[in-house]
Design a protein around this nucleic acid. Sequence first.
DNA 1: CATCTATCGACAACGACTACCAACACCACG
DNA 2: CGTGGTGTTGGTAGTCGTTGTCGATAGATG
Lengths: 134, 134
Amino acid sequence: MNQAMPNVTRNTRQRAEVLALLREVEGFHSAQQLHQMLLARKAGVGLTTVYRTLQLLVDAGEVDSTRLPGGEQLFRRCSQSKHHHHLVCRDCGRTVEVAGPAVERWADQVAAQHGFVDVGHTLEIFGTCAECVR
Amino acid sequence: MNQAMPNVTRNTRQRAEVLALLREVEGFHSAQQLHQMLLARKAGVGLTTVYRTLQLLVDAGEVDSTRLPGGEQLFRRCSQSKHHHHLVCRDCGRTVEVAGPAVERWADQVAAQHGFVDVGHTLEIFGTCAECVR
DNA sequence: CATCTATCGACAACGACTACCAACACCACG
DNA sequence: CGTGGTGTTGGTAGTCGTTGTCGATAGATG
Ligand SMILES: [Zn+2]
Ligand SMILES: [Zn+2]
Ligand SMILES: [Zn+2]
Ligand SMILES: [Zn+2]
């Protein structure tokens, strides 16, 4: 007959391609950009699969995601697994990982002062990097 | 003949309606939500105009905007016109306006250290407010 | 190999948002 | 008050990122 247990993650060629690309790429990129790169290297991966794989990786904590002011979602494989934030170039996606212990404390403290619990935060710094200025 | 100076902001009924609504409403709402409210009160304001007016208000610093995790843009008339951030309850949407001069300086300084220019940032603190804990 | 089923992917659909453009209505001026 | 011009409106069509659909495909297990 059969048994119910729809919880197996398969090791497919497409997921390996996406992961390999993310390992070589620097900074944040959109799903569509990554898809274009995969096309360029003749990796056979559909756009839908790119989206799904990225979402899987985000859920698994393997990939960080942020959103452009326009709402577009960007993805990046992060080197650190601990909590940190990003300084991102609006034009080329170059990213610097930054840590601000003082900011973390400030955020928690402000929230506590107002009686908030289970506190989290989002913080992104945007700008144009030195390369893109020229 | 004529003179060139396309920089006059007119005082239209539609803009007054949007502003009046924003004055009565509490917390963050999407453009479409606000449009629905305007429909309900029989104010004749098109969706396009709602979007345009909100963008005007954001540019003028009269209204603050943030983005839902899904990317949808939310708007709120803020009591302060100067730069500040928000502490938002995940459950009820209650919002506290907070200011952190130290954070502002830190963000600009970090960006400058890495050669970034034209720098901006986003910062939101999320949590569960005292009311919603009970 | 055989079989089961998670996964793929081309395409359609969706939702937020914007461009278009002819009709409209502020408002400075006469 | 009229009137002219020009900033503004708004229905509609289109853009764009993202997700749903569903038959075809291909991992994994024995
Ligand atoms: Zn750059
Ligand atoms: Zn943090
Ligand atoms: Zn609450
Ligand atoms: Zn700030």
